Amino acid sequence: MENEVNLRCFIALDLEEEAKEAIARFIGNAKTSFPEAKWVNPQQVHLTLRFFGAMNSSWLPLISSITERIAASFPKIPAFISKIGVFPEPRRARVIWMGFDALAEDRIKQLAEELNHQLWEVLKIEAEEKAFVPHLTIARLRKPKRVDLENFRLPGKIATNLYRITLYKSTLTPRGPIYSELSFYPLKR
Rank of each mutant, 00 (worst) to 15 (best):
V40E: 15
A93N: 04
E17H: 09
H46A: 10
P78V: 04
S65H: 08
I178S: 02
Q43E: 15
L47D: 10
P90W: 01
I125E: 02
F152E: 10
R25C: 01
L62T: 13
E150D: 14
T48G: 06
V133W: 02
L62I: 01
I27P: 11
L141F: 14
D14F: 00
F26H: 06
L141S: 05
V95W: 02
E17I: 09
F34S: 11
E150M: 05
A159T: 10
T137A: 04
L187H: 10
Q44H: 12
L115D: 12
K76V: 12
E17V: 10
I63E: 02
Y185S: 14
F26K: 04
K124P: 03
N161R: 13
V133L: 12
I23P: 07
M55N: 04
V86L: 01
K76S: 13
L123Q: 01
F51L: 07
I11K: 01
L111E: 05
P186Q: 09
N6I: 04
E113F: 06
D101Q: 05
L119F: 06
F51N: 10
C9Q: 02
S180N: 13
L13T: 09
K76C: 05
I66P: 03
P134R: 03
V86Y: 02
T32V: 07
T173C: 05
F51D: 11
E121W: 00
K124C: 03
G176H: 06
W59K: 15
V45L: 04
E126H: 12
L149E: 05
K38T: 14
H117G: 03
P90C: 06
E113H: 13
H135A: 06
E18W: 00
L187V: 11
I77N: 08
S64Q: 15
F52A: 02
R153W: 00
E16I: 08
A139D: 12
V95M: 02
R153Q: 15
P144A: 12
F80N: 13
P88F: 05
K157P: 13
N151E: 14
H117T: 11
S33E: 13
I125L: 14
L13G: 04
E114I: 09
P144Y: 03
S64V: 00
E17P: 03
A30S: 15
E68S: 15
T32N: 13
L49V: 09
L62M: 11
Y179G: 06
E121D: 09
K76H: 09
A102I: 10
F34I: 08
Q110H: 11
M55G: 02
A104G: 08
P35Q: 11
K38H: 12
T137D: 12
E150W: 01
L149C: 08
E4I: 15
A24F: 03
F184L: 00
M98N: 01
